[in-house]
């Protein structure tokens, strides 16, 4: 147990470092640029219509507070961190006076649900198919899937999502291409709403899965084709260990560890994809919130979503890291 404790401390420290560096980047971006973010925001907001001079002055004051532009840079820096740690990003400018925190709280379950589901599906299906493809190298349909994955994997989320949208929205309009649920359905735990959510999430989920599955498939296939030449697999083969045991406990089990690390390392990229996918399909999650926040010049919202994204992704990475010793018992000894 002390070994695990040491290991967990190390991981926790890495988590703190990620959040620290990430938030500092956000601070530097918003504070060291020559452009005055307050005037930027005000011009973005006021360009839409007439706003009285008093209202603008009021807005300028609250913005300066929000940006933490009062006092010298040390005070600014400390107040910036205080806001982040208290998750207080002030009122949203675009949905005034709703606080940014409540907008994020409303959007978070959508993104979390979509991402958790699609990541889990593409990771497990991709790995399973990849393992089979690495083991049964001459299987026709698995080979075909490999070619498909090769062609699909390097294409960015945006292109895949757009193509799906064209196909299912215009050429063969059978699926809803925008929104998280039907407008006329009451949100809540009723059958209609849940069905509508599922219906609406088909396209966003499909595009995320289509992209994700390829890289897991290709990664697992090459891992497995290396593992089957390892001594312990050859030895188990000549020892007549049963096929299913061989596949599960010898091949997949040993390929799993790098794939779990890979999952942790690609969560950031997966989140990037979600931002775009959500925006394209008008899905009411963090991505849409972020992009709309930029369009509306809503500083608090953009900073809030960015911080939540950094913390959320590194927290997920931390969770994966902490359960990693279950998958590979060697790691505690090594560290």
């Amino acid at each position: 147990m002390p070994a695990y404790f040491n290991f967990a401390i190390k991981r926790l420290w890495q988590f703190v470092l990620v959040v620290f560096i990430g938030i500092n980047i956000a601070y530097v971006i918003t504070h060291v640029t020559p452009i005055d973010p307050v005037e930027q925001s005000i011009s973005a907001v006021t360009s839409f219509g007439n706003t009285s001079p008093e209202a603008i002055a009021d807005m300028r004051r609250s913005l300066q507070e929000l940006y933490g532009l009062k006092g010298d840079w040390i005070e600014q820096y400390i107040s910036f961190w205080r806001r982040i740690l208290q998750a207080d990003f002030g009122p949203s400018l675009s949905a005034f006076p709703a606080p940014v925190t409540s907008l994020i709280a409303r959007a978070l379950p959508w993104t979390f649900g979509l991402l958790a589901f699609t990541t889990l599906v593409s990771w497990s299906v991709g790995n399973l198919l990849g393992a089979l493809a690495g083991y049964y190298r001459n299987n026709r349909s698995l080979k075909f899937f490999g070619v498909l994955a090769m062609a699909l994997h390097p294409v960015p989320y945006y292109i895949v999502a757009l193509s799906l949208m064209i196909v299912f929205g215009f050429i063969w309009p059978v699926l809803p291409i925008t929104g998280g649920s039907a407008m006329d359905v009451q949100q809540g735990w009723n059958w209609q709403f849940v069905a509508s959510v599922f219906h609406h999430s088909v396209l966003p989920a499909l595009s995320l899965i289509m992209i994700g599955i390829g890289s897991w498939f290709l990664g697992m296939r090459s891992l497995v084709s290396n593992i089957i030449t390892e001594d312990y697999v050859v030895y188990a083969e000549i020892g007549g260990v049963a096929q299913s045991r061989m596949m599960g406990s010898y091949i997949i089990r040993n390929a799993l560890a790098p794939q779990v690390t890979g999952l942790a390392m690609s969560l950031g990229g997966i989140f990037n994809g979600a931002v775009i996918t959500e925006k394209i399909f008008g899905y009411p999650g963090l991505g849409t919130l972020l992009v709309d926040g930029v369009y509306a010049g809503d500083y608090g919202l953009v900073l809030g979503v960015t911080s939540i994204a950094i913390i959320g992704v590194s927290l997920s990475v931390l969770v994966i890291d902490l359960i990693y010793p279950l998958i590979d018992p060697r790691v505690q000894v090594a560290s």
């Binding site: 890495q14 470092l17 990620v18 560096i21 990430g22 980047i25 956000a26 971006i29 918003t30 640029t33 452009i35 973010p37 930027q40 942790a264 390392m265 969560l267 950031g268 990229g269 989140f271 990037n272 931002v275 775009i276 972020l290 992009v291 930029v294 010049g297 500083y299 953009v302 900073l303 979503v305 960015t306 994204a309 950094i310 992704v313 590194s314 990475v317």
Partner: peptide, 18 residues
């Protein structure tokens, strides 16, 4: 590892925003 983990897209958007 920090730079691997951090979601870069929101950061880039923040850049554009400013």
């Amino acid at each position: 590892d920090t730079f691997i983990v951090i979601p870069l897209f929101p950061i880039l958007i923040l850049f554009y925003f400013v």
